[in-house]
């Protein structure tokens, strides 16, 4: 078995407006080896096959996939917003690449800044985000952003933005402003 640097928790969110938000969030499994990751990955639906309103989240053990968590509340996210048609051609590749960045500690000395990643399946366009713990840590956030953009294979013309969770929470009906872009 090949151990990972951290133990990770996979969460699944299914939107049911009749229940409180937190009740719709389920812990699927935890793992801390490469082999256990692939066993998990091969047993769950691909992100592109989930219903609209569902999310997967992969977070380090001890960090809940919500803004309110102590490890997230001063943080933010690198956000990739996808066009509708990308669900069928690119979503699964981009989400897997995101997972591999996290599990492989691809952000080097700044990997400890990473809290997790989320994929949101939405009718109006899916989203993938990498969450980090300190929005004010510009060096760490920018390093993660540059590596992440390169790993996703995005063209230099594609811009991805980083938003602080505090700004996103304050603007629930519209996109928060980008604090950084790459």
């Amino acid at each position: 078995q090949h151990p990972l640097q951290y133990r990770w928790v996979l969460w699944f969110f299914k939107n049911d407006r009749s229940r409180p938000w937190q009740d719709n969030l389920q812990l699927v499994t935890t793992f801390n080896t490469v082999e256990e990751f692939w066993s998990t990955y091969s047993h769950i639906k691909l992100a592109s096959k989930l219903s609209s309103g569902c999310d997967y989240a992969l977070f380090k053990e001890g960090i809940r996939p919500m803004w309110e968590d102590n490890r997230n509340k001063r943080g933010g996210r690198w956000l990739l917003s996808l066009a509708k048609q990308q669900r069928h051609i690119e979503l699964d590749r981009l989400w897997l690449e995101t997972l591999l960045c996290l599990l492989g500690e691809s952000f080097e000395r700044y990997s400890k800044e990473v809290c997790g990643a989320v994929v949101n399946i939405r009718t109006k366009g899916d989203k993938i985000a990498v969450w980090t713990s300190e929005a004010e840590n510009q060096a760490g956030v920018m390093h993660i952003g540059h590596v992440y953009k390169e790993r996703l294979g995005l063209s230099s013309k594609t811009i991805i933005g980083y938003q602080a969770h505090a700004d996103t929470a304050a603007k629930s009906n519209s996109l928060a402003k980008n604090k950084f872009v790459v």
């Binding site: 078995q1 090949h2 151990p3 080896t33 692939w38 066993s39 492989g104 790993r151």
Partner: peptide
């Protein structure tokens, strides 16, 4: 040491039989 793996290394394990 730090458990750092590149993407190709991780992908090599994708279709190995699970032994957990």
């Amino acid at each position: 040491g730090k458990k750092q793996y590149d993407r190709e290394f991780l992908l090599d394990f994708q279709f190995m039989p699970a032994c957990i």
